[in-house]
Design a protein around this nucleic acid. Structure first.
Lengths: 228, 228
DNA sequence: TAGATTGTTAATCGATTAACAATC
DNA sequence: TAGATTGTTAATCGATTAACAATC
């Protein structure tokens, strides 16, 4: 197929395939992988894998499968992971600190290259070799360090203001951990990670699961009663 | 409408409306709110808000809007937030610690009630008044503390095993922070939060944004050239 | 050639949205 | 009554999936 925009749902799954492929590559040294195997690892169905991959081009071989290394490269390229995108964290509280020292980022090729806060107490402190700088220096740092991703880890009240400063500095990609919605121009991408929201959604399904279990139990009792 | 399952997409937005409503309630003391206002706060469109809310029942008043307190209560109830769901964190490393001391959970009614690890080094250590216990005690703790949500913050290799122990202990809701897919029986809900994946998706859109900017620049140059 | 597996089609399903009658 | 806003319908759009011809 090639060309024409890749559906959002597909883009969201490419990193999952990427991880599965890395596992295959580092593992038993298999040279090819089938959509069926990939699907099992990613927890989706095989038709979806083939459809998703077809948006990148025809990189498989009928009767054989996909060449692991080649597909790995293609997905990496498609996701833009052949370049590096320096990131800044704004808000170095509890969560910001955890993010700043989180190994997972560097392992997957993301470099945290600046930390910002406004609290005099923490300014100048170093985390993983990086000093915490004042938010006022954001714009110059973005230019100097080529920062292209902003990670917001502030309290909710500050998030919108920080988002605006990031946009003003020219940042086009924002990862928002603050528990509030930020509004940005349409050419800026925001992804939101909200722990409370995840728990609340889980609460809904937990409640439903429990309701089902309770109903089943009631039925069982009724059945026993009828028997007696 | 009432009854018949609420679409997944709607469930995922209810917490966002909930937060917006809390803001209205704590704010200027407005008694009602329109779908238009709610939509602006939640960053969606008004038709979607009305459709979503209609799955809960007809809680609005034509010409007036929605009663803030009443709607707040209905969403809280629908999400199962009138009960409390004690949660356990498994894997008290970098991220686990941040989660254990994250205020956002308790503020939104989730209580972390047990911490587990397997590393002798950290066992017995206290975080926020809770001791880190050995994973072997998981099952009894789940029963004793009535734990219904498991939060996995282990390295990827351990995640599947931990998930199985949670399932075996009777936990039906899992929040997975480990960068790997876990497989569970169909009656267990898993939500996955993966920071690297979020960054990789962002990388894709960042790359696309940059490609557009580059193309625009090329066009501009061409236009200037033609003029000259 | 026989068996395996892709890439693509087409059917189906679910989510979004505009529009508007109902009704405060 | 006039203005506002919901709840619902129906059209549209996008995502999922099964099925299978193409092809290694």
């Amino acid at each position: 197929m090639r060309n024409r925009p890749i559906p959002e749902a597909t883009v969201a799954r490419l990193p999952i395939y990427l991880r599965a492929l890395l596992e295959v590559a580092e593992g038993r040294g298999e040279l090819t992988v089938s959509s069926e195997e990939l699907a099992a690892m990613a927890g989706v169905n095989a038709a979806k894998v083939r459809k998703d991959l077809s948006y990148l081009g025809s990189y498989g071989t009928r009767g054989v499968g996909y060449d692991v290394e080649y597909l790995l490269y293609q997905i990496t390229r498609e996701l833009g992971l052949t370049q590096d995108w320096p990131a800044a964290i704004i808000g170095i509280g509890n969560l910001g600190r955890a993010l700043a020292s989180y190994k997972g980022f560097s392992e997957r090729g993301f470099r945290i290259s600046a930390l910002f806060d406004v609290d005099e107490e923490v300014l100048g402190e170093q985390i993983g070799g990086l000093p915490i700088r004042h938010l006022d220096e954001l714009k110059e740092a973005v230019v100097e360090e080529g920062i292209s991703i902003g990670i917001i880890a502030t309290p909710p009240m500050a998030a919108q203001e920080v988002a605006e400063k990031l946009v003003d500095a020219g940042v086009k990609s924002i990862l928002n951990f603050a528990p509030s919605v930020v509004n940005v121009p349409p050419d800026v991408s925001v992804r939101k990670v909200d722990l409370s929201i995840e728990l609340q959604i889980l609460s809904f399904y937990q409640q439903r699961t429990q309701a089902i279990a309770t109903a089943r139990e009631a039925n069982r009792r009724l059945a026993v009663q009828r028997k007696v």
